[in-house]
Design a protein around this nucleic acid. Structure first.
Lengths: 350, 350
DNA sequence: AAAGATCGGTGTATCGTTAAATCAAAAGGG
DNA sequence: CCCTTTTGATTTAACGATACACCGATCTTT
């Protein structure tokens, strides 16, 4: 007796094939596989066996259409730099998101776009995502406009790093305590006796960075110290931050301390100071933010603020799925704590 | 006169709504929007106007089902570490991929999985991607098995970092010239007079890293120098590499040079050497690989190899789309050049 | 023993789009 | 002026799954 045994059929196996082969209706197969409806154990086993034998896999596309659910979350990173994953703080959040979503059978579609491309690709209309996560940069006004546009999609929206929401926006914000972290940095710097300080910020507005700076500034203001001097860099890259710091050093007297907007900028500034002949931390102190892995391996070890970036991503995913399932989009704000991490790029408080 | 003007209808607008409103058949609407079939300019304009007025957006889900095309590429990063985006070399490739795909209206679904999860989530059966990109780690045998499994999906497959393919695998490989880069590093080190060298490699097998090492080894072999001593680190993280180097330094005589498997490991090794009291590059020389942005901002500036990671990702995306469109899956290998980048962590060749 | 409840399951319609076949009317050809 | 071709558009039937309504048997209940 010949057994062709052709389980790797060329045409894809559909639910009807299984139904015919098992001698039941397509509906029953569906019910068995989804554990719905009333099916006897016997036929269920039989159906499962046939499914196994034919190697049937339900069509995701069909299910998506029928149930109008995509099991897909869109993630939008709006930033000028096309190299949108260069910041480890962002990748860590992405990782957290992906891992959580994968574990819950959702997929993440990642897209980095320039603000100017927001309307064309930012709304993920070619995707029909079940929800959106966004990290926005740019001026407050522009960001608010983005947020409003995102709301028109009628899917849950979670914003990361954003510090406050327009009243009408029914989004969730997931962020860390940037202000608090910045304040601790400021207090620490003040305690070392520094008074004349710079803050290194990129040209682009990041709400989180502004909050860090505001935190530090509030500490300085309370102490009656002189105002922080903002040094603008073109962007957050090492190169640009390095150049900006070097130029600023050449232009006038050096500061007691430089507060970097993040670790990258701080490390670049550190290098610039060293190259300019200053000793760290004796002459100039440096602080970073976010404690990305390298902070310990530069010399001297960087004083920074440890953030739970991975957890931020996970919480965002969790919130998003919860919103999608419940259909409730109430305004909400989730803030995770940060931890100040003193290193050797600042002096011990005296 | 009251104009309710309710363009943001609650129920989604389908092609039928447009057809009814425009007084034509659904098919005509479809044809207008896709520029197919025979349609007079007049009706086309009219239909477009109605589409605009009703705010109609074609349903991606329906189109996906009908055309059995998903406009989606799956990217698989198989690695033990759940923090699969911590390597900037990988994120740069991801960025290149995403940007190219987005520009061509494809989406990337990213997933980092442990080797043990390969069967459950690795095949993207819950996605039905039009193609797959994979970065695999692990033993050769295991990787080959993964490659074979990926082939069963009957979609184009592009592998990154892989150095050679099993004969039956009709995949494309996109990689950089790791061997050549490693060889240049080896030659450079030899030229400085170093003879007794270590190679820092993670426990996990990365084909690319092995190739770099083989390149360096070949230079040493030809020069008749003593064999490279492999120092295994548990993984590629700074912390583990640092500890491994420090331990190795304590256990015996220091090497003339340490060849890092990548920049991260090299920087960690550098710090370990400094902390152990060695001067760089006078006593110990260090080299990295991949030139991720920080290489210039550590002290001393790291000698490394510049790679076109972004371009690797773009080429991968391009190849994938080409394969999908043509339906031709012939074995292919694309190799991009690398550029040796001498720094101050090695001495000048004498 | 009639009436209802439970069990196990089937048929039909539908999600929104597009390929293929078809068709009526206008245009062209001899 | 009849016959073919072209033009512009329609009708039908999928793509593969699931919601919903319904149905014929058993099994209870009184």
């Amino acid at each position: 007796m010949k057994t062709p045994k052709k389980p790797a059929a060329d045409r894809t196996v559909t639910i009807k094939d299984v139904a015919r082969e098992a001698g039941v209706s397509a509906m029953s197969v569906s019910n068995v596989l989804n554990g719905r409806g009333r099916i006897s154990e016997a036929t269920a086993d039989h159906v499962r066996a046939v499914v196994e034998r034919l190697g049937y896999r339900p069509s995701v596309a069909a299910r998506r259409l029928r149930l109008s659910q995509q099991w897909t979350i869109g993630m939008l990173i709006v930033v000028e730099d096309p190299d949108f994953l260069s910041d480890p703080f962002i990748t860590a959040q992405v990782t957290g998101l992906t891992n959580y979503l994968t574990a819950h059978s959702y997929s993440l579609i990642l897209r980095g776009i320039k603000p100017s491309d927001f309307r064309t690709t930012g709304l993920f209309q070619d995707i029909e995502a079940d929800g959106m996560v966004a990290i926005l940069s740019g001026e407050q006004e522009q960001r608010e406009w983005f947020i409003q546009e995102l709301s028109t999609l009628r899917v849950p929206v979670v914003l990361m790093q954003e510090q406050r929401l327009p009243d009408e926006a029914d989004c969730a914000i997931i962020r860390q305590d940037d202000f608090g972290g910045g304040r601790q940095v400021g207090e620490h710097i003040l305690a070392t006796g520094a008074r004349n300080c710079w803050v290194l910020l990129p040209q682009v507005e990041w709400a989180a960075m502004r909050a860090r700076m505001a935190g530090a500034a509030s500490a300085f203001a309370e102490a009656g110290a002189s105002e922080l001097k903002i040094v603008r860099c073109g962007d957050e890259s090492f190169e640009v931050s390095y150049d900006a710091t070097l130029q600023a050093l050449r232009r006038g007297p050096p500061p007691d301390a430089i507060i970097g907007g993040n670790d990258q900028m701080a490390i670049a500034a550190m290098k610039a100071c060293l190259d300019a002949g200053f000793r760290i931390p004796e002459q100039v102190q440096i602080t970073g933010f976010n404690a990305f892995e390298i902070w310990r391996y530069v010399d001297p070890v960087l004083t920074t603020v440890r953030s739970a970036a991975h957890a931020l991503g996970e919480r965002a995913a969790e919130e998003l799925i919860a919103r999608f399932k419940s259909g409730q989009f109430r305004q909400r704000e989730i803030v995770l704590p940060v931890e100040f991490q003193p290193g050797n790029s600042t002096r011990s408080p005296s």
